[in-house]
Structures are given as structure tokens and as C-alpha cells.
Amino acid sequence: MPHPGWSTFSFDGIGTRWEISTPDQLAPVLTGELLAAVEEYDKTWSRFRSDSLVSRLSRGAGSITLPEHAAALEELYAVTYRLSDGAMTPLIGSSLERLGYDANYSLTPLGAAQAPPRWEDVLDWAGTAMTAREPLVLDIGAAGKGQLVDLLGGILRGAGLDDFLVDGSGDMLHAGAHPVTVALEHPYNPRQAIGTVELDNAALCASASNRRAWDDGLHHVLDGTTGKPILTTVATWTMAASALVADGLATALFMVDPAPLEKEFDFSWLKVSSAGSATFSTGFEGRLFT
């Protein structure tokens, strides 16, 4: 929770609710810059917009030039794709659409689950350059919101702000001298918490299968090798220096054991299985309720 007396700038963007908390009210020119950054990110990456940059690739093979921040996103996906043996992939959009999580939010499956094409077979992505060899549905939702949290934090720092909390519906970035205590939402009851964690000049992100669930057991965290929802894990939380890394690894933990990820990334984590058991890293300094 933000500190008492802080001002909060709230808005909707990329399909979710945002709150940016600061000691003083943000100037209109700064709020305008923040909103413009959100709109630009959405217009680049959204598979729900026909006018987005990546949506061009869903209509046919071709090449696009992405913004500079795409390089960090590609690097994260390349590592998690490798460590998950293809389970975490930016091509998962076609599988989501097949199960009903499409641009119209129909939530009506078109048929049985189906894996997307393999990245190495159909897509060349090197930093800001992306080429699709056939029509593809890109979906970078596993890490994109976290990256946008970082980008907004960068705008605040660029404006000279040292104290802030950027909260994109649970994906958070904190900066300042006073840590904040964050409740960890119960995966089966959003009105309850399973514990708390102190966030101190770091990012905290979560992934949960209950956040976007529909039909009979369907949700948005899919295995890219099968196109099916992952049922063994129900919720994860990760802490890292950047929200991009924290967000991406919160999803990767559904598909990869923590040990390989810990060899590649500096982060801490908490994981709740579908059986109800919780495991966590030694660096995840929180308090779980019994």
C-alpha cells in the first residue's frame, strides 16, 4: 500500500488498472507523458488492436521495426524459451485465441487446445527487428506489463522523482527511502491474503491462473508446447531489480523449476501449487499466514 498522505494518479491502460503513487501530485505535463507511453506500448504490442504494430504480422508474413525496449524483451523471452523447452513463448497468442481469449473476449473455445508454431521455425527476432515467415499471433503478456511498469518508472525518474510506487494491477515497482508492505493475494479468494512482503527499491510481480479464467478449467497461463492451461501451479510471486524480469519469471515459474532460472537471473520467488503447498526462495523475505 502507498504511504498515507501520498497522491495517487489512477488510470486504465493495456486492459488493466494503474495507480502511480507519489508524495506530491503529478504535474499535468507528466501525467500526459505517462499516458502517452502507455498508449504507445499498447499500440505497439497489443494483439487485441487491429492497428497495433504486431497485429500486422497476424495478417501476413513480413517484417516490422520495434521500439528500442524490444531488445530487452527479446532477451528475456529467448532465455525463458530455452529454459522452458519452448513452453514460454511469445507466439502463444494463437493458442489463447483458439481457447477463446481473443480480441473480442468471446471466451468461447474454437476447438481443442493447440500448440503454437515453434519460434525457431517461423520467427526471427533480433532486438528491434522482427520478421515473421508466416502469419503469427504475438502475445508478450507474460512480461509486457512488467516492462511497461519499468518504462513508467523511468519517466518518473527522468522527471526528477526519487519516491514513487508504480502499480499495474499487482505488478509493482518501488523507489524511495520508505519501503511499502504489500499483501499477497490468495489465489482462490482475491479478498484474502496469504501473506505480506516488504517492497524496498525493487519490483514485485505476480502471476495467477485465477486472474483470467473462463469456461471449464481454462485460464491464460498456457504451456507453449501443448497449448493447454498449466494446472500444477496456481500462483507465483517474484521480486527483482526490474519489473520486466520479475513479471517474466513469475510466468516462467509455472513452467520451469526455480533452479535453472536462478542460474540465469537474480530474483527471489514464492510459488503455490494446485495442491495448496507453498515453496519459496531464501531471498523472498515475506511473512506467510498460517
Results as ranks from 00 to 15, higher is better:
residue 108 T to F: 00
residue 130 M to R: 03
residue 269 W to N: 12
residue 233 T to N: 10
residue 244 L to M: 08
residue 169 S to C: 14
residue 57 L to T: 02
residue 22 T to W: 03
residue 194 I to L: 12
residue 79 V to S: 03
residue 64 I to L: 00
residue 50 S to R: 13
residue 87 A to S: 15
residue 185 E to I: 07
residue 146 G to N: 06
residue 34 L to V: 15
residue 183 A to W: 06
residue 180 V to R: 15
residue 104 N to D: 11
residue 19 E to V: 05
residue 76 L to V: 04
residue 205 C to K: 10
residue 186 H to P: 07
residue 85 D to S: 13
residue 178 H to R: 12
residue 168 G to F: 10
residue 34 L to C: 09
residue 147 Q to L: 15
residue 79 V to R: 03
residue 78 A to T: 07
residue 250 A to W: 03
residue 277 S to D: 09
residue 106 S to T: 14
residue 262 E to I: 01
residue 276 G to H: 04
residue 237 W to S: 08
residue 80 T to M: 05
residue 218 L to R: 14
residue 196 T to W: 12
residue 92 I to F: 06
residue 103 A to K: 10
residue 96 L to G: 11
residue 158 G to E: 12
residue 214 W to V: 01
residue 275 A to E: 14
residue 233 T to D: 03
residue 242 S to F: 12
residue 6 W to P: 11
residue 63 S to R: 15
residue 110 L to I: 01
residue 86 G to Y: 05
residue 4 P to T: 11
residue 37 A to L: 10
residue 200 D to S: 14
residue 186 H to K: 09
residue 229 P to H: 09
residue 160 G to S: 06
residue 284 F to G: 01
residue 287 R to D: 07
residue 141 G to L: 04
residue 118 R to A: 11
residue 192 Q to C: 09
residue 53 L to Q: 05
residue 31 T to F: 11
residue 290 T to G: 10
residue 220 H to W: 01
residue 63 S to V: 07
residue 13 G to I: 03
residue 67 P to M: 02
residue 96 L to N: 11
residue 3 H to G: 00
residue 119 W to M: 13
residue 204 L to E: 10
residue 244 L to E: 07
residue 111 G to V: 04
residue 234 V to H: 09
residue 161 L to V: 04
residue 227 G to F: 01
residue 202 A to S: 15
residue 180 V to D: 12
residue 190 P to F: 08
residue 86 G to L: 07
residue 29 V to K: 09
residue 152 L to Y: 13
residue 285 E to C: 09
residue 79 V to L: 02
residue 236 T to W: 05
residue 221 V to Y: 05
residue 107 L to D: 04
residue 66 L to H: 02
residue 248 G to N: 08
residue 220 H to Q: 01
residue 283 G to Y: 02
residue 283 G to R: 01
residue 219 H to M: 06
residue 122 V to R: 04
residue 181 T to L: 04
residue 78 A to S: 14
residue 109 P to C: 03
residue 256 V to Q: 04
residue 102 D to W: 11
residue 110 L to K: 14
residue 131 T to Y: 03
residue 1 M to T: 12
residue 157 R to A: 14
residue 161 L to F: 05
residue 181 T to V: 10
